[in-house]
Deep mutational scan, measured.
Amino acid sequence: MKVIFLKDVKGKGKKGEIKNVADGYANNFLFKQGLAIEATPANLKALE
């Protein structure tokens, strides 16, 4: 799953980066902790 990092995550990505991560990692950790959002077309456009 492609995500946009909202904060730096050690060993995974930095704020503003768009990366592929495992679905479970994104859903169970990144999204719940507010560290990333899904890289949907709307979210990508808002990032610009």
Results as ranks from 00 to 15, higher is better:
Met1Gly: 02
Met1His: 04
Lys2Phe: 13
Lys2Glu: 09
Val3Glu: 00
Val3Leu: 02
Val3His: 00
Ile4Tyr: 06
Phe5Ala: 00
Phe5Lys: 00
Phe5Ile: 02
Phe5Met: 04
Phe5Asn: 01
Phe5Val: 00
Leu6Gly: 00
Leu6Thr: 05
Leu6Cys: 10
Lys7Gln: 14
Asp8Thr: 10
Asp8Ile: 00
Val9Met: 04
Val9Gln: 01
Val9Trp: 02
Lys10Trp: 13
Lys10Cys: 14
Lys10Asn: 11
Lys10Val: 12
Gly11Asn: 09
Gly11Phe: 06
Lys12Phe: 15
Lys12Ala: 15
Lys12Asp: 08
Lys12Leu: 15
Lys14Gly: 05
Lys14Tyr: 11
Lys15Asn: 05
Lys15Ser: 08
Gly16Phe: 08
Gly16Arg: 03
Glu17Ser: 05
Glu17Val: 04
Glu17Met: 06
Glu17Phe: 03
Ile18Leu: 06
Lys19Asn: 04
Asn20His: 14
Val21Phe: 09
Val21His: 02
Val21Cys: 07
Val21Ile: 09
Ala22Asp: 15
Ala22Tyr: 09
Ala22Cys: 12
Asp23Cys: 14
Asp23Thr: 15
Asp23Arg: 14
Gly24Trp: 15
Tyr25Pro: 06
Tyr25Met: 06
Tyr25Leu: 08
Ala26Arg: 03
Asn28Phe: 08
Leu30Glu: 04
Leu30Trp: 06
Phe31Tyr: 06
Lys32Tyr: 07
Lys32Asp: 12
Lys32His: 09
Gln33Leu: 14
Gln33Met: 14
Gln33Gly: 07
Gln33Glu: 14
Leu35Glu: 03
Ala36Tyr: 01
Ala36Met: 02
Ala36Arg: 00
Ala36Ser: 01
Ala36Glu: 01
Ile37Tyr: 04
Glu38Ala: 12
Glu38Trp: 04
Glu38Ile: 11
Ala39Phe: 12
Ala39Met: 07
Ala39Ile: 04
Ala39Asn: 02
Thr40Pro: 03
Thr40His: 05
Thr40Arg: 03
Thr40Met: 03
Thr40Asp: 06
Thr40Cys: 07
Pro41Ala: 12
Pro41Asn: 09
Pro41Val: 12
Ala42Asn: 10
Ala42Pro: 08
Ala42His: 10
Ala42Ser: 11
Asn43Arg: 08
Asn43Ile: 08
Leu44Gln: 07
Leu44Val: 12
Lys45Glu: 12
Lys45Val: 09
Ala46Lys: 13
Ala46Asp: 11
Leu47Trp: 14
Leu47Ala: 09
Glu48Tyr: 12
Glu48Ala: 14
Glu48Thr: 10
Glu48Asn: 11
